[in-house]
Structure formats: structure tokens, C-alpha cells
């Protein structure tokens, strides 16, 4: 990611996944500073692609124009990446890992047990998987520092870093990654999800 245009796309893409998001959470997702992200968002707002909502849950969201714009970018990406390989990885590896992760979350909530070793296993498998996704779509590398950050915070004793919504928790990032894959691969969410 070097050019402004790439950052621009990343901002819009991030908003598509998140639905509504604060400047800081977009900055975290695209790996840019908050100031730079704010500049990009304001520029997009000037073009009518995004708007800032206030209220109980304030944040940026895509306008219908913004949605169409990012839709075009996704179509471009779809034709560029190796979707067959990614689809196979999704079916064979991601879904299995997804089940394990959700089991872990449920187990942790209902039983309050020690999940660290299982989380470590899932995290390690996840990093390996991301590396393979990145071979086809380099943009997926951006998930790595986000997962590592959440994992480190959780291991460091921050219990909210696993599941707390809209806090860049492991679950937040996971949900985005899953959504990202669904969109890119034209898949539907499984029934139990």
C-alpha cells in the first residue's frame, strides 16, 4: 500500500465491512495514522461517497454512491485474484477454523474456562492461513497486525480483547475477515453463523 488511491479504497472497503465505524477504528484497520485517515474520509465525504452520522452510535458510513463505488473496486479485485485457490482455502480451512473459534468463544462465555491454549492454536493456524490468502490477495496482510494486536492484548490480561464488539477485539477482526471473504468469493454465510 503506497498510493493515496490504495488508501482511499482501503478506507471505503473497511467501511463496507464495518457498516459504521469511527475514524480511529478505520485507521487501525487500514494501518494508517488517525490524522491521515481523517483527511481521506473528509475527501471522500466531499465526493459524496461517505457521510458522518451522529447520535448514540456515531460514525462514518457509506452513501449509496460510496457503496456503488466500492462495488466497482471489488469487481476489479475479483477478476484480479486467484479466487479458485482462495475459495478452496475458505472451504477447507477457514470454515473449520471458524467453527473452532466460535466454539471457543461460546465455551469461554458459558464456562469461563481457560481458553488460552486453544486460542493460541487457532491464532497460529489463522496466521498461517492469512499468509496463504495473502499470496492471492496481498491486501489480506493487513489483518495480521490486527489479529496479533488483539491476541497480544488478550494474552496480556485484557479480557475484552477477545469478544467486546466494536473495540477491535479478536472477534471483531474475525467477523470482518469472514465478511471480506464472503464478499470476495460470492459466498453466503453458513446457516449456523
Amino acid at each position: 500500500m503506497t498510493t493515496t488511491e490504495e488508501f482511499d479504497t482501503a478506507v471505503l472497503y473497511s467501511l463496507l465491512l464495518k457498516g459504521r465505524a469511527s475514524t480511529s477504528s478505520i485507521a487501525a484497520a487500514i494501518g494508517a495514522t488517525e490524522d491521515a485517515t481523517a483527511t481521506l474520509l473528509e475527501a471522500s465525504a466531499a465526493k459524496g461517497l461517505v457521510l458522518l452520522r451522529t447520535g448514540r452510535i456515531s460514525g462514518w458510513l457509506l452513501t449509496p454512491e460510496g457503496r456503488a463505488h466500492v462495488g466497482d473496486r471489488i469487481d476489479t479485485e475479483k477478476s484480479a485474484v486467484d479466487r479458485a485457490t482462495m475459495g478452496a482455502l475458505y472451504d477447507d480451512e477457514f470454515l473449520r477454523l471458524n467453527s473452532r473459534f466460535k466454539e471457543l468463544c461460546t465455551h469461554w462465555q458459558l464456562k469461563g474456562g481457560n481458553v488460552e491454549s486453544e486460542l493460541t492454536r487457532i491464532h497460529e493456524a489463522n496466521l498461517v492461513l492469512l499468509e496463504r490468502f495473502t499470496t492471492s490477495a496481498p491486501r489480506f496482510a493487513r489483518y495480521v497486525p490486527r489479529f496479533v494486536g488483539a491476541y497480544d492484548r488478550f494474552s496480556g490480561g485484557d479480557a475484552t480483547a477477545l469478544l467486546q464488539p466494536m473495540r477491535e477485539s479478536y472477534h471483531d477482526v474475525w467477523l470482518e475477515l469472514h465478511e471480506d471473504l464472503l464478499i470476495l468469493l460470492d459466498r453466503q454465510r453458513e446457516e449456523g453463523d
Binding site: L17, K18, G19, R20, P165, M166, L175, E176, E179
Partner: peptide
């Protein structure tokens, strides 16, 4: 999906 989550908070 993730873009529903902010709705959970309200």
C-alpha cells in the same frame, strides 16, 4: 455480519 454489530449496541 459485522455491519450489524453497531445495531446491537443500541
Amino acid at each position: 455480519s459485522p455491519h450489524d454489530i453497531h445495531g446491537f449496541l443500541v
